[in-house]
């Protein structure tokens, strides 16, 4: 039973990971990425760690995938749909990743891990995780909260759109702001 579930989850996870990178429309790619993350959560459940699985579903499928789909909808342009990767780079990437997989795989299969067995199932996993997080890992826990808050504030302030008064202060000579100035001219024309 576990074997059937394992094989099914492997096919689901690997297949949707490939589809996420190779799909024609990037929206379908984002949905395939969410399905791949769900497959990873299934692996966590197979590995008797339900707490990490629930965390994975909440954070990745619930938050990250929705955020990615939002961004994909926001920046949707024609260039998203053109698949213009040159063949040389594709073949080079394929060869490199296959070589890496084969190399590490040979190392792994010749190591002691190749016939290692799992230890017996742990009990009261959630209790143990809670204990560790609030005692030994409590400084890390606080730092993690600060990091998350900092990243959210940073992302908000990065993505904030400057109003037109602010744009005037940018030096118009620098080439970086060509597009912005073009934007502004377009907007002015539209207003006129």
């Amino acid at each position: 039973m576990a074997d059937v579930a394992f094989i099914g989850l492997s096919v689901l996870t690997v297949g949707s990971a490939i589809f996420a990178l190779e799909s024609r429309e990037i929206v379908y790619g984002a949905i395939a990425l969410a399905i791949s993350m769900l497959g990873i959560a299934g692996f966590f459940i197979l590995l008797d760690s339900p707490f990490v699985a629930m965390f994975q579903i909440i954070v990745y499928v619930g938050a990250v995938a929705v955020l990615v789909i939002f961004i994909v909808m926001l920046v949707r342009t024609e260039s998203l749909f053109s698949v213009d990767v040159d063949r040389g780079r594709r073949i080079a990437g394929l060869i490199f990743s296959l070589l890496m997989m084969v190399g590490i795989g040979v190392l792994l299969f010749s190591s002691l891990f190749s016939n290692a067995e799992f230890s017996p199932v742990m009990e009261k996993i959630v209790n143990k995780i809670g204990n560790e997080m609030l005692t030994y890992y409590s400084p890390v826990f606080i730092l993690l909260g600060l990091t998350l808050a900092g990243s959210i504030i940073g992302a908000l302030s990065l993505a904030r759109r400057e109003d037109s008064d602010h744009r005037d202060q940018m030096s118009p000579a620098s080439p970086q702001y060509e597009n912005l100035n073009l934007d502004k001219k377009n907007e002015e024309q539209e207003h006129a």
Partner: peptide
């Protein structure tokens, strides 16, 4: 379902990710 099977799946996923990082030029 031993240790090595899970590590193999993980290895394949890393390979796919490295392939994507090398080949794709789309930031998303």
């Amino acid at each position: 379902t031993e240790l090595i099977n899970y590590i193999t799946v993980s290895l394949i996923l890393v390979g796919i990710g490295v392939y994507g990082l090398i080949v794709k030029r789309n930031a998303i």
